[in-house]
Nucleic acid binder design. Structure first.
Lengths: 121, 121
DNA sequence: TATTGACTTAGACTAGACTCTAAGTGATAA
DNA sequence: TTATCACTTAGAGTCTAGTCTAAGTCAATA
């Protein structure tokens, strides 16, 4: 699969895909006889996982660490699990924070709708 | 209330408070006779609201726009409401995205725990 | 009185995550 | 066969949201 096709599939830019490869999140991606990237199935699966995790707010740095541990092999299994568990905690905390903010936002919108605004902001 | 006290109360830095004032999110904060900031109750309420919304991922730019509309007065009420409704939609979408990612993360951790990992990454 | 410490300002710097530019290569269409 | 187009690289530039620095002021303590 070409870089363009991958970019379209995952709705990201070619630049972002090359950037992910440069920092070592993906690949190195195989090149065809003309030197152009040809993404494999497993490249695609990595990209999907990374995109999903990154869109949830997990940093490139943390994802890179995970990928590096993965590439080191079996011996890092437990460390990888712990890394994921930490990210799970952070993610749950973030969702809580956002849900709280959402509630406040909804309350404020309610004030607007019922014309009961007399507050600061 | 001094800048230090406010920073402690909301767990942010003096620098961030000055930055918020510089971009017009808060204040202008009153100064005492020695030229030092003395935050009022309504400054504190703004800061609390802004901190909460920003921690949920609403950008400084959007918050600034809201504050500016607020300061323009009554006539912008409907526009402000619409702005908040848009942010509500975005926030709900973000929470959905993050919840999806969280589910995938939990599933992956389960694979680690039951030693069923045979996948990519 | 001298120094310490918390504040003030303007403005430079930083990190993270891209995003763009310039210069070049290879395959295909006119 | 020349032009066009999608790709390649290295490296520079951008944006957001701070964060830090330098130089200075003021009040309180040694």
């Amino acid at each position: 699969m070409t870089i363009k096709e991958v970019a379209e599939k995952f709705d990201m830019t070619n630049d972002t895909l090359r950037y992910y490869e440069k920092v070592g999140l993906v690949g190195p991606v195989k090149k065809n006889s003309s030197g152009m990237r040809d993404y494999s199935e497993s490249d695609l699966k990595r990209i999907e996982f990374i995109k999903c995790m990154h869109s949830a707010g997990i940093s490139i740095e943390v994802l890179k660490k995970y990928v590096d541990l993965y590439d080191e092999g079996e011996s890092t299994k437990l460390e990888r699990q712990h890394l994921l568990e930490e990210e799970q905690d952070k993610l749950e905390e973030k969702i809580r924070t956002m849900t709280e903010a959402l509630d406040k936002l909804k309350y404020k919108i309610e004030l607007y709708k019922t014309n009961k605004l007399d507050e600061y902001l």
